[in-house]
Amino acid sequence: MGTTSRPPARPGVLRWLGYAMGGGLPARYSPWVLHDTTTRTWGLRHLARALVQMAVPIVLIVALVPAPAWIRLMTALGGLLLGLVFSLAYMAETTENRVKKAGYPPGTATAARERAARVREQQERERRRAAAARRAARRRARR
């Protein structure tokens, strides 16, 4: 994440699809990769990439397997659920690998997420202290 206020350059749809399928991006997108894997919604972004990866085999199963529709759909659903379980189980490792591919040292994404969590916790503590001070001031004013 940079010191500038401009958001990092986003890849186009085709590049993002390649990235979602596990490919790398050119170096100019490295700040975006770090943002993608460390922003507050990084887990949802990971799930979106996982669903894109699983879409191809699911479509092939539903379209090409010679079986009744209910068997094809149940097979696709089972594969999707199993794929999501594995995707969630290895979410942190997968995102770290993406950040490493983008040229950052291992552990960068985890450290950035932990740093952001500490900042959010500090802001929440300050918000609660300010709210408590306002309540105390209102109580004193009522007396």
Rank of each mutant, 00 (worst) to 15 (best):
L14I: 08
L64E: 03
F86H: 10
V33W: 08
G79I: 05
T39P: 00
R49H: 09
A20Y: 09
L34S: 00
A76K: 07
V33K: 08
L25K: 08
A48L: 14
A69H: 07
N97W: 12
Q53I: 04
L64Y: 09
E93I: 05
V52K: 02
T94G: 03
L73D: 05
M54S: 08
M21G: 08
R98G: 00
A67D: 05
A48R: 10
A48E: 06
G24V: 03
M21C: 07
L47Y: 01
W16R: 13
G23D: 10
A89F: 01
L81G: 13
Q53H: 06
A63K: 06
T39R: 12
G18F: 01
W70N: 04
T38N: 00
G78P: 03
L88S: 07
A67I: 06
G23E: 08
L60E: 02
T37A: 14
T38D: 00
G78Q: 03
L88G: 12
L80A: 11
L51R: 04
L17W: 07
A48C: 07
R40Q: 12
Y29M: 05
L17A: 14
M54R: 05
D36E: 14
H46I: 02
R45M: 08
W32E: 02
W42V: 04
I71Q: 07
R15I: 02
L47T: 12
A63N: 04
L34N: 11
H46Y: 01
P31M: 04
G23M: 09
V62M: 12
T94R: 08
V52H: 05
P68W: 13
M74N: 10
L77Y: 06
L84C: 11
T41W: 12
H46E: 07
P31T: 10
G83Q: 03
T37S: 09
T38R: 00
R15E: 15
I61V: 15
I61Q: 05
H46F: 04
R40A: 15
V65W: 12
G23S: 13
M54T: 01
I61S: 05
P57E: 08
T94I: 02
G79C: 14
V62A: 14
I61M: 12
L34Y: 01
V52D: 01
L64H: 04
L34C: 00
T75P: 02
G83N: 06
L47D: 09
G24D: 07
L17G: 03
R40F: 14
S30H: 06
L82C: 07
G43N: 06
G43M: 15
L44G: 15
G43L: 14
T95A: 13
P57I: 08
T41E: 08
M54H: 06
N97S: 13
T95L: 13
V33R: 09
L25Q: 05
E93F: 01
T94Y: 04
A50C: 12
W70D: 10
P31C: 10
L47K: 04
M74T: 15
L14C: 05
W42D: 00
